[in-house]
């Protein structure tokens, strides 16, 4: 037996309403954030992480050029965009998994042949919890951030780790 949080009388577990005071009990099962970290994740929006400006290339760009640019710009992923539409994403991991030791024979091929098409995206107005959810469950390192359907930024797992460390107060 559990007790009703409103009137204190005993109620059956799983009941929708309290028989005595008729209060609805259905909201009792909605998890409430308890720690500041949880509250922050559910309240702060992705834009507060200041998503970086993505490095954008066209789908025809040769893969060799893309690799050189990734190094020159010190970035881990590029976005493939055509006519304001995000077509795909190409990351260090794609380079390692798809080009690997055979890279020499692919350098002139277009990036569109190796990109990951239609990546998971989020909006800048979404809560940070969603970013953590997508990255953690999907195993992604980068998530493109859209504003009104247009690519405007990218956040990485390290942005999230930095946010969490600050919230948790990792001793420096």
């Amino acid at each position: 037996m559990i007790t009703c949080p409103f009137c204190g009388s005993e109620i059956l577990e799983g009941a929708d309403v309290c028989d005595d005071c008729q209060h609805s009990l259905t909201d009792m099962s909605i998890p409430q954030p308890v720690t500041p970290v949880e509250r922050g994740l559910l309240k702060d929006r992705i834009r507060t992480l200041n998503p970086r400006v993505p490095y954008v290339v066209s789908p025809e760009t040769p893969i060799g050029t893309v690799l050189e640019n990734m190094l020159a710009e010190s970035i881990g992923c590029v976005m493939i965009v055509q006519d304001d539409k995000l077509l795909g994403i190409f990351s260090e991991r794609d380079a390692l998994m798809k080009l690997n030791a055979e890279v020499a024979q692919f350098v002139d091929r277009p990036i569109s042949a190796f990109m990951t098409p239609e990546p998971i995206t989020l909006e800048a107005k979404n809560r940070i919890a969603y970013a953590l959810h997508k990255m953690h469950v999907g195993g992604y390192r980068h998530v493109p951030i859209m504003t009104d359907g247009k690519l405007t930024g990218v956040i990485s797992i390290r942005d999230i780790l930095a946010y969490l460390s600050e919230k948790i107060g990792v001793p420096v």
Binding site: R93, A95, L96
Partner: peptide, 11 residues
């Protein structure tokens, strides 16, 4: 993989 990228880019 970052080291790998360097090697791949420079052939």
């Amino acid at each position: 993989e970052r080291d790998a990228l360097k090697l791949m880019a420079s052939g």
